[in-house]
Design a protein around this nucleic acid. Structure first.
Lengths: 343, 343
DNA sequence: AGAGCATATGTTTACGTAAACATAGGTCAA
DNA sequence: TTGACCTATGTTTACGTAAACATATGCTCT
């Protein structure tokens, strides 16, 4: 069992093994030269005492902790747990850990969060999107110049990254979907989104979408964005409201949750899809494929975005080297329009 | 901007403000007495230098870090991000942060993960479920006796917690669903699950379910559990396979993802639900409510479980006091059977 | 056999912070 | 006027680790 009260240190292990603390450090970190005899004795003493490495001390002694800061806009959307999963897998491979926080799509909260996370002296920080307040940028710039903190921005590549951006082209995804809907003969189109004007990536998609729509002779007849988070229920409700007053040829949703909710409304109310109204989402969640009608959507490599970002943050990625040498860098992981049964 | 190269410390701030490092500490932590003059000078110097508090040093100096370890079985299931969200909110209120890891429903991985997370000297650790390997228990016991680490196990309350368990009664939820299906006249019932035999909570539900089913004159005619993670697609596939050879009156799924997938199969293939086959899930995900037919399921308070666990781990919860005084303690947050349109 | 050197281990120190203890200067009562 | 007592600040130290430097032991080569 463990010691009476205070935690077991390398010193305790050293005493029991009859060596110096430094030798214990060498054995446990497999650094430097140690003899087999000493190694065995130290290992034995360590396990007998239930020694637990203290990473706080290591992190303090070394120039940075094996922590990476991860800022997420929300956990309420399937997308970000998937990104987080990718990040976590990449970090785990490198023996690092994530400390994360949620900004709720709010710049002020993001700012406070970034400051807080930086106090853990993370080796790197991951941020959603390319838009951040001046104060956030300043805080990050400070960490970068003081400790060489790595910075990766994920999801969006439409803009200037602080250092490296990993994601997909948002406006182009919107344009692509507009062209698809036009090709299917839809002209009068409605847009439904969520998170107010705080979801900048959705805004960029809409911008590209509207532009290509006009260019192709279509028209965005309505655009409604709810304030709250997106969900199936919200999508269903918004769709019901919309269709009660308007008859668009198609509805473009800011994501698959909303779109799937819209499809549910149509299925439950005998509205023919895509005959009476076509539906298109974004993200390519697995729900899009499992619905009675396969949802037309844009598939994004969320896990891969997280994983790649994690690799760069961990520093064992060639891309990271290049980034530091050649300045801001963009990694486009590509999205793919999946034409389903709903358009 | 920040200093040339090494990070700014309290000493640097102190030098610029013309006071001692300790005074800076007192001002920034609002501890001890300081004069308004000095406070202002220190604040000014700190912000001019872009000083960032070093929590690694604080954590080392104090007896534990403001970190809490969180073990999740997976991020691939809606349920756990929701729990994590609750934990994170509770911890944020208390100025704490979560370091998390994913065990993939695997005891050996959980063990390694727990060891790793404990090296951050967390104030507390959160674990999924009540079943853990002997080595995991030993590692935790060591941390508890050495540093008074708090331990909270979540989701399940059917068993003996290490210290505090926050969750719902799994077996009883299974029994309740069996009674519901029997009351609706279903007798020959199939069970479909995922994650092999590693999801212990699902196993407990099935046990209670089977028991109450027998007691009420029903019969569990098939029980199939896939090895991989649960998903809509998997549920759809498993349901298709099952119905191609068997005609149960009802299918009980280990969770709503699978159940929703099953419902999709039925909707897409014109199978009358619940006429030809009834479907029931577990968790009460929002998808259950948004489908064309509302899915019968058992609603669980996932965010609340996380939040409550977070409060206890943060230590600002009366329940935590009681727990330490009166030994193991169980907090039942209650589940609720929601009869939908599918049974 | 002695110089030279590799190998294994020990000693000192610093990382940044905050508790514990120390002290200068002022206030106030008798 | 003196000393007892605050109040605001400074000094020392320890938290647990690992880099840098120091040393002892034995081995190789001529």
């Amino acid at each position: 069992m463990a010691k009476d009260n205070s935690r077991t240190t390398m010193g305790d292990v050293a005493a029991r093994a009859g060596v110096s603390q430094m030798t214990v450090s060498r054995v446990l970190n497999k650094s430097g030269k140690t003899s087999q005899t000493v190694r065995d004795r130290v290992q034995k003493a360590a396990s007998e005492l239930g020694y637990v490495h203290n990473r706080l001390a290591t992190g303090l002694r070394m120039r940075f902790s094996p922590l990476v800061a991860v800022v997420l806009p929300t956990l309420g959307n399937r997308v970000f747990p998937e990104v987080l999963n990718g990040v976590n897998d990449a970090l785990s491979e490198a023996g690092l850990r994530a400390v994360f926080g949620v900004s709720e799509y709010d710049d002020a909260q993001e700012e406070a969060l970034v400051r807080d996370l930086l106090s853990w002296q993370p080796r790197g920080i991951l941020l959603p999107g390319l838009e951040h307040s001046a104060a956030t940028r300043a805080a990050i710039a400070g960490a970068v110049s003081a400790s060489g903190t790595r910075v990766v921005e994920v999801m969006d590549i439409d803009g200037d990254p602080i250092s490296v951006a990993v994601g997909v082209a948002q406006a182009e995804a919107g344009r692509e979907m507009a062209r698809h809907l036009l090709a299917r003969g839809h002209r009068r189109i409605a847009y439904l989104g969520a998170q107010g004007d705080r979801d900048r990536r959705a805004a960029k998609r809409l911008e590209g979408f509207a532009e290509a729509l006009r260019a192709g002779g279509g028209r965005l007849i309505v655009s409604r964005v709810s304030e709250g988070p997106s969900s199936l229920a919200e999508g269903r409700q918004m769709t019901a409201d919309l269709l009660s007053t308007t008859k668009p040829h198609a509805i473009y949703y800011s994501n698959d949750d909303l779109a799937a909710g819209g499809l549910m409304h149509c299925l439950a109310n005998g509205i023919d899809v895509p005959g009476q109204v076509a539906l298109a989402g974004f993200n390519g969640l697995d729900i899009a494929d499992a619905l009675p009608l396969r949802l037309t959507t844009t598939r994004t490599p969320r896990y891969q975005i997280g994983f790649q970002a994690g690799r760069i943050l961990a520093g064992d990625d060639a891309g990271a080297q290049m980034a530091s040498v050649s300045g801001p860098r963009v990694i486009d992981l590509g999205s793919e329009l999946v034409a389903g049964d709903t358009t």
